[in-house]
Amino acid sequence: MNKGVMRPGHVQIRVMDMAAAVHHYRDVVGLVETHRDAAGRVYLKGWTESDKFSVVLRETDQPGLDFNGFKVVSNEVLDSLAGELKAFGCKVEEIPAGELDDCGRRVRFDSPTGHIFELYAEKTRTGKWGLPSVNPEAWPRGLAGMKVNRFDHCLFYGGDLDGTFDLFTSVLGFHLTEQVVDGDLRIAQFLTCSMKEHDIAFIRHAEDGKLHHVSFELETWEDMLRAADIITMEDVPHDIGPTRHGLTHGQVVYFFDPSGNRNEVFCGGDYFYPDHEPVTWTADKLGKAIFYHSRELNDRFLSALT
């Protein structure tokens, strides 16, 4: 049931070298830099995104993700979900408006898999970058690198998948779109709050709070080839692709940022309506579920996390 959570809104990514990270996310991935704050954080967005920013880079001594924020439809929904999160047992913290520049107050909470999430209702809206909202052209000139459309979703690794499943489905109103099961044990879950195939995903793993990837959307398979060309031209550490996943049927390329955080660019994939049954993959077909063509598991893709 829809509880008023609209979409993934932002991520704060930890990086070890800000100059290298800005070069990567702005000039290689092709996000647009929108702002730098007094704390030294750098704000960026994909050009199609309506709000002012979606990706925040914070420099520190270890990579990973500080938090993933979701935008909700109103402040009333924010207040009622804050209460439900407390009742569920989450540690809930109110972050005042302005802690992130141009963002309203946020409700931050932990999760059974050890990841930190946020909800917020208000962020300064600047519209698509480089285009007016009246009679816009097809795309803006002056985009860099892979020219990604938007920050799309994250995939996380952690232990208590069942607990985080309950949190996202019963409290936040997400739907299960796709899963991998090993007998009775769910080892992967893809969840949506929209028509997208997933707005967040989790893989069962011994260590909590880990990031597998931050994903950015592109439009076509040709864009996948071009992204992979840029990875080679820029000598970016390449992981996998272009290829297709069985899971979601999305077409993907994976690579690492200069601090070792994995990025995905993807296009295509399935869609979801609330009357759809979840798609299930069985653990004996895991190779095909992850890499639809090679059908072989890959140690680095499964093990390299931040």
Binding site: M16, Q62, P63, P237, F256, D257, P258, S259, G260, N261, R262, D299, R300, S303, A304, L305, T306
Partner: peptide, 11 residues
């Protein structure tokens, strides 16, 4: 073992 090649993953 070869991982992220960027000092992050520890493999």
């Amino acid at each position: 073992r070869v991982g992220c090649r960027a000092g992050g993953c520890g493999l």
